[in-house]
């Protein structure tokens, strides 16, 4: 089994982590048999900002995160860290990560990752387009003495 380059795995784990849990469940309704290497565990990640946006780090506050690790029957190990407290989301994301390291990868990529990527892009685009509509276009009024 070839090990995929970390960039690719980094990207797909991110897509799975940020997916709406209900949407991931709809796209990946049936999970193959798997063992829980680490049962889903909800905890906190301390989010850090930077002083002045670019300086030294400071602790901004925590966010809820759920992590989980699974092993498929054929041996592939999947990990997930997802935002929020949805244990089903974490298990599903971990199983998807494992599947993406098997021969099922092209199918999972097409049926799960691609729709999730497109939907996330659509949400971001809709937000950006609404923001763009509120961009101020300044114009200069003609003053009386100029006429």
């Amino acid at each position: 089994m070839p090990t995929p380059p970390p960039e690719t795995r980094k990207a797909w784990i991110s897509v799975l982590a940020k997916s709406p849990p209900a949407r991931l469940a709809a796209l990946l309704p049936r999970l193959p048999q798997h063992d829980l290497l680490r049962a889903p565990e909800t905890g906190a990640v301390m989010v850090r900002g930077r002083v002045g946006g670019s300086g030294e780090p400071f602790n901004l506050g925590e966010m809820t995160v759920t992590r989980c690790s699974v092993r498929l029957v054929e041996g592939a190990v999947g990990h997930a860290w997802v935002q929020g407290r949805d244990t089903g989301h974490a298990i599903r994301a971990a199983v998807a990560d494992a599947l993406l390291q098997t021969d099922a990868a092209p199918e999972i990529s097409r049926q799960v990752l691609q729709p999730l990527r497109e939907e996330a892009a659509a949400v971001a685009r809709a937000r950006a387009e609404k923001a763009a509509a509120t961009k101020v276009e300044f114009f200069t009024l003609v003053r009386g003495e100029d006429q």
Binding site: E41, T42, G43, A44, V45, M46, V47, R48, G49, R50, G53, S54, P57, N59, L60, E62, T64, V65, R67, W81, A124, R127, A128, K130, A131, T134
Partner: peptide
């Protein structure tokens, strides 16, 4: 909640701005 990790410091310069 157990503290699982600290994040990499966020980059507000690459924020997807709504305002």
């Amino acid at each position: 909640l157990p503290r699982l990790a600290g994040s990499v410091a966020i980059e507000t310069g690459s924020m997807a701005v709504v305002r």
